[in-house]
Design a protein around this nucleic acid. Sequence first.
DNA 1: TTCTCTCATCGTATATTTACGATGAACGAT
DNA 2: ATCGTTCATCGTAAATATACGATGAGAGAA
Lengths: 105, 105
Amino acid sequence: MAASKKEEFKTEDIWLADIAKALSHPARIRILKILTEMNVCMCGDIVELLPLSQSTVSQHLKELKRVDLIQGDIDGPKVCYCVNNKTLLKAKKELDKLFNQVCAC
Amino acid sequence: MAASKKEEFKTEDIWLADIAKALSHPARIRILKILTEMNVCMCGDIVELLPLSQSTVSQHLKELKRVDLIQGDIDGPKVCYCVNNKTLLKAKKELDKLFNQVCAC
DNA sequence: TTCTCTCATCGTATATTTACGATGAACGAT
DNA sequence: ATCGTTCATCGTAAATATACGATGAGAGAA
């Protein structure tokens, strides 16, 4: 592209688009579900459940962390990942708001 | 990248990720809102409201059409765009389902 | 210390996205 | 038939995303 023009939009729309971007790969949708289903949630556990290499999974986790949808707590050599309920709640609320504005339902 | 591995995931997760991808740019969030707010909804009207060129807006409209979030009805030389309530409703429902699975709320 | 386990990051290749101007197709009006 | 309006698509450039193997950092165990 040329320079991105994303920053020229409203903060609210930029934030929602950013959350949507984090959810825009099936691996990341799956990771969120896995983190909820499992109590122990190491990166290695996720790698075993996905058809992706460790480094690729790590990149997807980074993208989810970037928008604060998940967090990783260091526990010795391991990292325990879990979903961030506060951000999920905000995302749910803002998406609801969008759909209520946009959808006749 | 190497070849994409998106197709190796569950249909449900792929669909939701695809909807999220369509929502992953603030211009497309804005377009959905504009289409709802306005009754007449030509491409040119949208171009005037966004800091983007006509060809770029047309590309964003194409991405929203790709996942059936909007539709364009040809009216002479014009194209009248409007949101597709059926898909919006499905997206709302599936996103709600995701957040109810994933979020303790 | 040395070995192992866990994970992030680096380097790299390729695909996709974003953006624009230019062009062309389709239609109504003159 | 020609002109103007509307919009999609083509061509192009540059940024970003996706994927992997290799490497390295950090912590606990031997």
